[in-house]
């Protein structure tokens, strides 16, 4: 291959072009095999539910299942709302005002999955421990959530997630 000064460049180009086309081809062939593991259409289709709030009384908490996960619906007492609103933001590991986490102050709606490693925190039943801040307590690794579902103490990095929801009527909420 010493005929020209750049005698090798044409062959090099062919090598690189072949490898590049091969890599793109392999990549596009692999993608369906990877993407098949993502949620399937029927799983995605189950992504919203409606819930009747009229069955919930003040101070009561109800767990509903949404996307295979528990959703906590808590009808908060005035004291719980006041204590949630009174917390200074700089005391929070994941600062969020209580107002930004609710649409109607008395109904707190949260995904009941600890943001640490996914356990279901205790605090829904009257007999459950509710942690040091009156909200929820995760028994797995000891995270404490307050009455706004915000992380206050323990290894969880984030507040309990607020799902997308809207009030379809005064007493019905659609989650998802």
């Amino acid at each position: 291959m010493a005929e020209t000064q750049q005698g090798e460049t044409r062959r090099d180009f062919l090598y690189i072009a072949t490898a590049a086309v091969g890599a793109v081809g392999a990549g596009s062939a692999i993608w369906p095999l990877i993407d098949q593991m993502n949620p399937a259409a029927d799983v995605l289709a189950l992504s919203s539910i409606e819930f009747d709030l009229s069955t919930v009384e003040p101070g009561m908490a109800v767990t509903v299942k949404w996307r295979g996960k528990p959703v906590f619906v808590r009808y908060r007492t005035p004291e719980e709302i006041t204590s949630a609103e009174a917390v200074p933001l700089d005391e929070l590991p994941d600062p969020q005002t209580d107002a930004s986490r609710v649409q109607e102050a008395k109904y707190l709606i949260l995904v009941g999955v600890c943001t640490h490693l996914g356990c279901v925190p205790l605090g829904q039943k009257a007999s459950d421990p509710r942690g040091d801040y009156g909200g929820w307590f995760c028994p797995c690794h000891g995270s404490h959530y307050d009455t706004s579902g915000r992380i206050r103490k323990g290894p969880a990095p984030l507040n309990l997630f607020v799902p997308a929801y809207e009030f379809v009527s005064d007493t019905t909420v659609r989650i998802g």
């Binding site: 990877i34 593991m37 993502n38 949620p39 399937a40 799983v43 992504s47 996307r67 295979g68 996960k69 999955v113 640490h116 490693l117 996914g118 356990c119 797995c140």
Partner: peptide, 26 residues
């Protein structure tokens, strides 16, 4: 649940990886 959630600790893409591992939302 706990072990797959370990991957959610990865910054940015963690939650997508967990959803991918689960093939759903739990």
């Amino acid at each position: 649940t706990v072990i797959t959630n370990l991957f959610s600790a990865i910054p940015v893409v963690g939650q997508s990886i967990v959803t991918w591992l689960w093939g759903g939302f739990s």
